[in-house]
């Protein structure tokens, strides 16, 4: 956990409530960037970043191509568009494209997770929240294969458990956790960080 460099989150049906519960507990000074794919209808402008910003201290933005990643910011995939992370020396930035849907999804959670795994290896934490598809399960496999970690929202707590269950089924090392547990762990890592790293 100390090596974490980025948190990537996938969510679909029932995901907004879970996102609010999870993210509103994190402080504005959270020490990592967060990238978020929520399946949304492709043709409408998404209010997601505004809705989440209303409830949370973190800063939210609908990601733009080549936007640099910063700690304490949450980058939301634009509707109808894949969002990935592109490494750039010590830094990284957002990469968007409109390639065909992957596994019926665009944005695709698989693509986000895979790109993070390749860019950050052990530095990745992938989180699967409520949802009705199996998007993200394959991406999480790449995350584990390259040394990262994965969490899935506890089935009894997720509004729709298909997506976290698929992640667990494909990834024996994925941890099933309630949102409260996720928050506690993320805050604990932050506490444990040496001072100069939290500055």
């Amino acid at each position: 956990m100390e090596r974490l460099k980025i948190v990537v989150i996938g969510a679909s049906a029932g995901g907004v409530d879970a996102l609010i519960t999870l993210l509103r507990e994190l402080p504005a000074s959270f020490h990592l960037p967060i990238m978020l794919v929520l399946h949304v209808p492709p043709d409408q402008p998404s209010l997601l970043s505004q809705v989440l910003a209303f409830h949370c201290e973190l800063q939210f933005v609908e990601a733009q191509d080549k936007q640099p990643l910063q700690a304490g910011w949450v980058y939301c995939a634009p509707p109808g568009c894949h969002m990935m992370v592109e490494p750039d020396g010590q830094d990284a930035y957002v990469s968007l494209n409109v390639d065909p849907p992957v596994n019926l999804s665009r944005p695709s959670i698989d693509l986000l997770f895979e790109s993070a795994a390749h860019a950050y290896g052990q530095g990745v934490l992938a989180v699967m929240l409520s949802g009705a598809s199996d998007d993200g399960a394959a991406g999480m496999r790449t995350v584990f294969a390259l040394g990262g970690q994965g969490w899935a929202q506890a089935a009894d707590e997720a509004a729709v458990a298909t997506m976290p269950q698929a992640a667990l089924a494909h990834n024996p090392r994925c941890k099933e956790m309630p949102l409260r547990g996720m928050v506690a762990q993320l805050l604990a890592v932050r506490q444990a960080m040496p001072l100069e790293m939290t500055a």
């Binding site: 990935m84 592109e86 490494p87 494209n97 390639d99 895979e114 790109s115 390749h118």
Partner: peptide, 8 residues
């Protein structure tokens, strides 16, 4: 080229 796009 963007690696994240090329890999696929």
């Amino acid at each position: 080229y963007s690696r994240s796009s090329l890999r696929r």
